[in-house]
Structure formats: C-alpha cells, structure tokens
C-alpha cells in the first residue's frame, strides 16, 4: 500500500496536528511578554525605518500581509527567505508568531490564492490550516528590502565570496569584478563551498579560464549584458529555455562564456539574516530570529 493513501490529509486532521504541535512546542516563557505590539505596528516601524533611508513606500508593491490578522499581538519575529510549512513549524517551536518572508507564501509572485482555493489544493489547505491553528501572521518583505542601503543580498554575496576586495567597474548587475584566474568549474566549486550549496550547476566549458565575473539577474537580458562585461555570470536562478540556451549557443559560436547557476534560495537567504540586527533595532521589545529555510535542491551525481 502506498504511504500516501492518507494524503491529502483532511483539513481537520492537519489542524488538530498543527494545534497540538504548537501547544507542545511553544514552551511557557519562550514567548517574551510584549507591550501588545502587533504585526501591523511592526510593519509601520519598518516603513518608517525605510523612509529614514529615503525609500518611498509603494502601496502597490507586493510587500503586504499574506497570512493572518495584522492586529495579532506578536510574540516573536522571524526573518526568513521563504515561509514554508517547515519554517512555520520552526517559528512556532521558537514561540514566534510573526514571520517576515522574502519570497511569496502561496507559490506565485502576487500570492494570488484564487486557483489554490478553487481546486481546494491540499498543500494550500495544510499551510493555511497550520498558520490559523498557530495564530501566525506572515508579511512579505521583498521590493523594499532590495532597496535598503546597503542592498542586503549583494552585500552578503560579495562579502562571502571576497569579491568586495577585488577591483570592479560598474554598479548593480552591471558590476564586473577582476577575479584571480580560475576555471569555470573552479568558480562553480567556490560557490558550492562558500554558501555552502549542494545544487550548484554551470553551463560552458569546465576548463574555460575566467578572470572577470559578474552577478547576473534572472533574465536573459541580464545574461546578455553580463557577457558583454565578463567571462562568466553567476545567477541565482534563470529560465533555462532562454539563458541556458543562449549560453550554450555563445560557446558553440566560440565566445567562451560561462554561466554559474546557484539556487535562488542560496543567493538571497543570507540577506534575510543580514537584516536581523536592523530589524532588532526597530523591534527592541521582542526577539528577532533568522530561520534558514534551507536549500531546497541537491544535485544527483552519476
């Protein structure tokens, strides 16, 4: 018999399990007493702190509440890359009920849940059931996060890789670094070691010499731009039918370009850790904790 004959589990089953796990894991005393600070209060403070950096808050952005009642009194704050069910469980175990997630909660950029609701998606029901049972609130911090100074993702990446010590030209994704000469395979190995990551991949000749590198956006236009500036680009996710194919053709045409691919999560996770001191300075009454939502992928070697 399949192990999945009980899946999708019923909403009631999942709620009971979720509530039980919350009661068992939220040990008394872990949730620090707070002067009734709500999730909405915290977000207002974040908006104010952003404004102090000159960031105009856009109400049209995707940085909105996704789960729960914003007026819920917060017991602890979690900063994470992706509020998966596993991260929610960890948050509950830490006695925290407010999660700040960089990426969407419901599997699309706008967190549109209409299709999930229409098909009574069991994963969606499990996730919202767990959140409800544990009084969780989830808010997304993406667009304005990337506008913080210094920009958290690239700051952490450059620091981890030591690139901030290398001479460079340009800004943002048009910044090209002089890198001590390595092969494309060695460059990919550096990423696997430094992050660390079990899913680093690359396109191009493994023995190709690299001495200029750039970070690359998710789009083919980013890859095209990178190849004008550098021998290799490094991207935390591209679409394979365009960027990978473009790189394949660049090499077939003798242009000798490399593209290193790391998981989106590896590229951005540690930016959410980087902002914890900043968040702690904004929310002084409560613990602010980073939860590593973990690299989802690993590669299979044959």
């Amino acid at each position: 018999m399949s192990e999945n004959t009980m899946w999708p589990i019923s909403r009631r089953q999942f709620l009971v399990q979720s509530l039980l796990s919350g009661l068992l894991l939220t040990a008394p005393g872990l949730a620090q007493a707070s002067p009734a600070l709500t999730a909405r209060d915290i977000v207002e403070r974040i908006k104010k702190a952003c404004a102090e950096q000159g960031i105009n808050w856009s109400d049209k952005s995707i940085d909105t509440f996704k789960v729960g009642n914003p007026d819920t009194v917060v017991t602890g704050v979690i900063s994470t890359f992706s509020a998966t069910i596993d991260v929610m469980r960890q948050a509950v175990a830490k006695g925290a009920n407010f999660i700040i997630s960089h990426e969407p909660i419901f599997y699309n950029h706008m967190d549109d849940t209409s299709a999930l609701k229409a098909r009574q998606d069991p994963v969606y029901l499990a996730k919202t059931g767990f959140a409800e049972a544990n009084n969780l609130v989830v808010w997304r911090f993406h667009d304005h996060f990337h506008r913080l100074t210094p920009e958290p993702v690239t700051t952490v990446l450059y620091n981890r890789l030591g690139w901030d010590k290398f001479p460079s030209q340009g800004q943002g994704f048009s910044r090209s670094f002089e890198h001590p000469e390595v092969t494309l395979k060695e460059l990919a190995d550096i990423f696997a070691r430094q992050f660390p990551s079990g899913s680093v991949r690359f396109v191009g000749d493994p023995s190709q010499k690299i001495s200029r590198v750039s970070l690359t956006s998710h789009s083919i236009s980013g890859v095209i731009n990178t190849f004008k500036l550098s021998d290799a680009g490094v991207s935390a996710e591209v679409r394979e039918w365009d960027s990978v194919e473009y790189t394949r053709d660049a090499n077939e045409l003798g242009l000798n370009k490399g593209l290193v691919l790391i998981a989106h999560e590896r590229g951005e996770q540690f930016g959410m850790k980087y902002i914890v001191p900043w968040l702690s300075s904004i929310v002084t009454e409560l613990p602010v904790t980073f939860i590593n939502s973990q690299e989802p992928f690993r590669t299979i070697k044959v």
Binding site: W7, P8, Y107, P296
Partner: peptide, 21 residues
C-alpha cells in the same frame, strides 16, 4: 524539467512539509 524557484519549488517543499511522502 524545471520549476520557478518561488512557485513550483516551494510548492513541492510544502508538499513534503504537509506530510506527503
């Protein structure tokens, strides 16, 4: 073949997180 890493990827993480083997 592939997934968007803020769509199909986390969806599958939650498939596992919701108890599906």
């Amino acid at each position: 073949g592939e997934v968007v890493e803020w769509e199909g990827g986390p969806y599958f993480e939650d498939v596992i997180g919701s108890g599906r083997k």
